[in-house]
């Protein structure tokens, strides 16, 4: 009898939301911080794309270099790849751009294509333009001194 009473009380308290409330005391902070759910979130400041500049130093071997220029409006679709209009082997000299790496011509079976391979076609999968933004998570990566 007593056991049933106890269980009943716990259940009722639980449903009344006491238990969740007690548990919530030690809340884990999500990425949105301790900002209440029903308040409007704080708008992050808008960032501008960085202007064209020198190539950005690479941190490790085989790193896809970051894009040191604006890329808004650059179309990449089945019919045309804007990036290649400056980075292809026939265009890079006139454009003063870095020649696209030959590694980009190989498909996954090591066949060498006549131009950029399908798996490297969507450049911005790996190469990204930059804004001046603080990283959300601290990064302590250091390149090996020998390959710096």
């Amino acid at each position: 009898m007593k056991k049933i009473l106890l269980a009943g009380t716990i259940l009722i308290l639980g449903f009344a939301g006491v238990i969740p409330q007690l548990l919530a005391e030690e809340q884990v902070n999500s990425l949105r911080g301790d900002h209440a759910l029903d308040e409007n979130s704080i708008e992050p400041e808008m960032k501008n794309w960085q202007l064209d500049r020198d190539p950005i130093a690479r941190d490790h071997v085989k790193q896809p270099p970051l894009i040191p220029h604006k890329t808004q409006g650059y179309t990449i679709n089945l019919k045309f790849n804007k990036c290649m209009s400056c980075h292809s082997w026939t265009k890079y000299k006139d454009a003063g751009a870095t020649k696209i790496s030959q590694s980009h011509f190989e498909d996954r079976d090591n066949n060498v294509m006549a131009n950029v391979a399908a798996r490297r076609y969507f450049c911005t999968q790996c190469h990204v333009p930059q804004v001046d933004a603080k990283p959300l998570v601290e990064n302590t990566f250091q390149p090996l001194p020998t390959v710096k």
Partner: peptide, 23 residues
């Protein structure tokens, strides 16, 4: 070119700006 619209299929115009075929 292509400043205001998508470009047509460029395979015939310039093979260096489209995906490479097996050589």
């Amino acid at each position: 070119k292509g400043i205001a619209h998508e470009l047509p299929d460029m395979h015939e115009v310039d093979a260096s700006v489209v995906v490479g075929q097996k050589s």
